[in-house]
């Protein structure tokens, strides 16, 4: 603290300011601190929630293997017979379900990715006005439709349709794929729109100036430049498809088949968990194995997020 007051010509009227500054407004500071603490706590809640979720699901999921209720070998087999009394049983083979989840995810992404990216290109390059006025709200409504409603529509529209046209029972891998591809479409579209829009206009103009047609500009320039972003959208969609439970469960038939025939009923991780979690007794191996499946769902989510992070990093570099 220096008190320099010996400047010439300085008639210092002692105002309240100096005094006021020396005695800070305690009340203001207190309010300020309280606000900071409140927001910090809120942020902490996010982290705590995540970690307790990771902890609970993980510990519950690896429990059956640690306690020796189920062997890994048993779990990673194709034989599902949780109540089987056969020798060597019960069987908790979950490979069919893991493959089932992967299969519906991949197939629906295969359908949805071109459609979604196409729609995004339509909205940004072909007809922005129509896109913004009509397609954008339509996509937003699609996002909002609850998954049970998708399931119900699948059940009453798609399953009978498949049944009538093919003569199979209708509940099938195909039905699940159709429902999921509609459900993940909005995710892919909105992510793709964001990416394509962020490409500077000058790049497009450069391409048109060279005499390229619109399609050439789109296919050679836009899609290539925005590839990481487009892939991120597709992966986000896949993450959603992989974790979707009810809509899928309602239409795929829930038989523990290997998912290699489009018309056959299959099961996924989510459908098995949904159907059996309520009907099995806590602590039995049958119940425990469902938690292990939940852990696999969780790990897959983390894997998808990792993929997305890698994608966005590539996008930044490239």
């Amino acid at each position: 603290m220096e008190q320099v007051t010996n400047l010439p010509n300085k008639k210092l009227e002692e105002t309240s300011l100096a005094e006021e500054l020396r005695s800070p407004a305690k009340k203001l500071i207190r309010i300020e601190q309280r606000g900071r603490i409140y927001t910090l706590l809120s942020a902490w809640i996010l982290i705590i929630t995540l970690f307790s979720l990771l902890f609970f699901i993980t510990s519950k999921g690896i429990m059956p293997f640690i306690h020796g209720e189920i062997t890994l070998q048993n779990f990673f087999s194709t034989h599902w017979g949780p109540t089987s009394a056969e020798p060597g049983g019960p069987f908790f083979g979950s490979i069919n379900f893991i493959l089932g989840s992967l299969m519906v995810t991949l197939l629906s992404a295969l359908i949805s990715a071109p459609l979604g990216i196409g729609a995004a290109i339509f909205m940004t390059e072909i007809s922005p006005k129509f896109g913004r006025k009509i397609l954008q709200p339509a996509i937003e409504i699609l996002v909002g439709i609850p998954s049970v409603v998708y399931g119900f529509i699948g059940l009453t529209l798609i399953v009978p349709f498949i049944r009538n046209t093919t003569g199979s029972i209708g509940f099938s891998l195909l039905a699940g794929v159709i429902v999921l591809s509609v459900m993940i479409l909005p995710t892919i579209v909105s992510m793709s729109v964001d990416t394509i829009q962020s490409i500077p206009q000058s790049l497009r103009e450069g391409s048109y100036a060279l005499g390229a047609t619109r399609w050439q500009t789109i296919s050679r320039l836009l899609v290539r430049t925005s590839l990481p972003g487009l892939m991120t959208g597709v992966i986000l969609g896949m993450a959603r498809a992989f974790g979707e439970a009810l809509a899928v469960q309602m239409v795929i038939g829930n038989s523990p088949n290997l998912p290699f025939q489009l018309m056959k009923p299959i099961s996924t991780l989510t459908s098995v968990i949904t159907l059996n979690m309520g009907n099995t007794v806590q602590g039995t191996p049958y119940n425990s194995v469902l938690w292990s499946m939940a852990l696999i769902l969780l790990l897959m989510t983390l894997f998808f997020i990792l993929l997305i992070r890698l994608m966005t990093q590539r996008g930044k570099q490239g």
């Binding site: 995540l50 699901i57 974790g243 969780l298």
Partner: peptide, 12 residues
């Protein structure tokens, strides 16, 4: 945390 929490399957 925000990213993971918002992409978790709702069944989980």
């Amino acid at each position: 945390s925000i990213e993971v929490l918002s992409s978790l399957p709702s069944i989980v």
